[in-house]
Amino acid sequence: MNWFQAVVIGASAGGIKALSTVLSALPKEFPLPIIIVQHLYPHSSSRLAQILQKQSHLKIKEADEKEVIKNSVIYIAPPNYHLLIEEDRTFSLSVEGPVNYSRPSVDVLFETAALAYKSRLIGMILTGANNDGNFGVKQIKRRGGYLIIQDPETAEADSMPKAAIAAAKVNKILPIKQIGPYLLQLVNRSKKGPNI
């Protein structure tokens, strides 16, 4: 059993490249679900899963409403919908208005994930040119979750990781290339218990 039960990731401008780097470092037996909000133009088609699939050993799919969240699967928020996690670990979707000018919004995912997974959650903020995720990282921290933020120096757009670092006491700030390997190590190490 792993201490951690899920990973949530928020990314915006420059995110597709950053996500590719992180996800390509993970083996297909990576034991947790990974749930991603990447900001997109609202009317873009949903090819993100296909694009990222090329870089990943894990199965990647767009999250469906009421879908049961499974280990070793990467889920992407569909364009123009908010993605929420229910406490029974299924997905919900919503078309309520944009949050931080964004739909999907990182805050909405993180906020609901924090309630569903409490301290068993790893939250990650990558590159981005806004401050979506700011409220979400605070909620993850409040419930005892673990935060990994991309080193703003290595981010294509640094305001989102910078804002996250300012908003909450984060556990780890890492250059983009080291995030995947570190995540793997962290999750494997956590099999022994919460002493991390």
Partner: peptide
Amino acid sequence: YAKASVKRR
């Protein structure tokens, strides 16, 4: 209603 969204609002 699906809880997460109601609760959040």
